[in-house]
Nucleic acid binder design. Structure first.
Lengths: 206, 206
DNA sequence: TTACATACAGACACGCATGTATGTATGGTG
DNA sequence: CACCATACATACATGCGTGTCTGTATGTAA
C-alpha cells in the first residue's frame, strides 16, 4: 500500500493547492445547500483541512463564496462562452451556447450560480451582486447577439433584446438543472427551449 | 382618524385569521430569503404578531414552511392549473398554463416553490420532499398531456414525455422569475419558451 | 359569573456557526 | 544553522435563531 510520503512543496504551491481545493469543496456544498446553509466546517473537512485554513486563505464566508463565484464564472466562460464566440453567426452562437451549457450542467457545481442568484434575489449582499453582475454581463452579450441576428434577419423579431436575453439565460439554467437532465436529452431540450425563446424554428430531422 | 376598536371575533375566526396572516408573511419572506434564511421573528412581526403566535399555530419552522407550500400549491392550482383544465386540446392546455403561470409569477410569492425546490434539491428534508411531490404531480399531469398531444399529432415527437414535462415546468418557472418579467413581454416569452420545449411552431405575429 | 379553554406575548435556555486569537509545523532566506 | 514568514490547527468568545416554558388576556360554556 502507498505510504503517505509528504511531498516537498513550495509555499505558493501549497497555497494554490489548498485554495483551489477549498474553492471546489465550497462550490459543491454551495450548490447543494446555498449560502445560508453553507457550513465552513464541512467545506474545510471536504477539502481535507480545518476552518483555520479557510480563514487563512479567505477573509470570511463572504470572500470564500465570492471566490467560488469568480471561479465558476471563469469556468463557464472557458467551457461555454468560448463555444459561442467560435461561431460566426449570432444565432449559431446562441444555440452553441445552449448546447454547451447543457453539457456544463451535468457537473454538480453548475447549480452554484442559479442557487446564489435566487437566494440573493432582491437583496443587497456582496455575493448576490457578484452573481448578478456576472449574469448581467452575459445578458448584455446575448442581447447584442440577438440584436445582430435580428438586424440581419437570422433571428425573428420579438420582445426587447435584453428581456429576451434574460429569458434565454434563465431558460438554459432551468433546463440544465431540473430539465430531466438525462444525458441524451438534456442537450436537445436546451436547444429546443433556446430556439423557442429566440423564435427560431424547431429542428426538423433525425 | 380611525380608532382601533377591537372587533369581537370568535376563536375560530381569530385562529384562521392569524394563521393565514402568518402563512402569507412566511411565504413572502420565504421566497426572498429561502428556508435557511427564514427568521420566525421577522415573519411574526410582518404578520403583526410575535413568535409565540407562530409556535402556537405551527409545531415549528418546518410545519410553517409546509403550510406555505400547501397554500401556494393550492393557489397555483386554482389560478394556473385551472386554465389548463379548461382547454379541450392538450397543446392548448399546456400553452394556457404557460401564459397563466407568467401572470402568476408577477406576484412576489411565486418564487417560493422554485426557491425551496432548489434549496432542498438532493436533500432529505420534509419541506423539500413536499415541494418535490407537488412539482412531481404537475410533471406527471403535463407528461400525460404531452403523450396525448403526441398521439393525436398535435404535438411533435421529442424526448420522453416526462423529461419534456420536467423541462417544460422548469422553463416556465425560470422565465416567470428572471425572464425580464416586464408585464407586457413575460407572457410572450413564457409562451415562446413553452412552444420551444414542446416543439410547437412559433406564433406568427398579428 | 364562575371556571375552563384558547390565543398570544414575553423570558429563558440551548445549540450551532461565525469570527478571532493563539499555538505549532513547515518552507524560505541570511 | 538561525531566524523569520507562511500555512494550518486548536481553543475561545460571541451572536443569533430556534425551541420551550410561563404568564396574561380574550373567548366560551355551565
Amino acid at each position: 500500500m502507498t505510504e503517505e510520503l509528504p511531498v516537498r512543496r513550495t509555499q505558493v504551491e501549497r497555497r494554490a493547492l489548498s485554495r483551489s481545493a477549498l474553492i471546489e469543496a465550497a462550490a459543491i456544498r454551495l450548490s447543494a445547500a446555498g449560502y445560508a446553509g453553507l457550513v465552513l466546517e464541512q467545506v474545510a473537512r471536504d477539502a481535507g483541512y480545518t476552518r483555520g485554513a479557510v480563514y487563512h486563505q479567505f477573509a470570511g464566508k463572504d470572500e470564500l463564496a465570492l471566490a467560488v463565484v469568480e471561479w465558476v464564472a471563469g469556468l463557464w466562460d472557458a467551457e461555454v462562452g468560448r463555444c459561442g464566440k467560435d461561431q460566426s453567426e449570432p444565432d449559431e452562437a446562441l444555440l452553441a451556447v445552449a448546447r454547451a451549457h447543457a453539457l456544463f450542467c451535468r457537473r454538480p457545481i453548475a447549480q452554484v450560480m442559479l442557487t446564489l442568484r435566487i437566494e440573493f434575489l432582491g437583496q443587497d449582499h456582496p455575493v448576490g451582486t457578484a452573481v448578478a453582475d456576472a449574469v448581467g454581463d452575459l445578458e448584455t452579450w446575448c442581447a447584442e447577439l440577438i440584436t445582430q441576428g435580428r438586424a440581419t434577419g437570422r433571428i425573428p423579431d420579438g420582445p426587447p433584446a435584453h428581456s429576451t436575453a434574460s429569458a434565454f439565460l434563465a431558460v438554459l439554467e432551468a433546463v440544465g438543472i431540473h430539465g430531466g437532465g438525462q444525458p441524451p436529452h438534456d442537450v436537445e431540450l436546451a436547444e429546443r427551449a433556446a430556439r423557442g425563446v429566440l423564435g427560431l424554428p424547431a429542428v426538423t430531422g433525425p
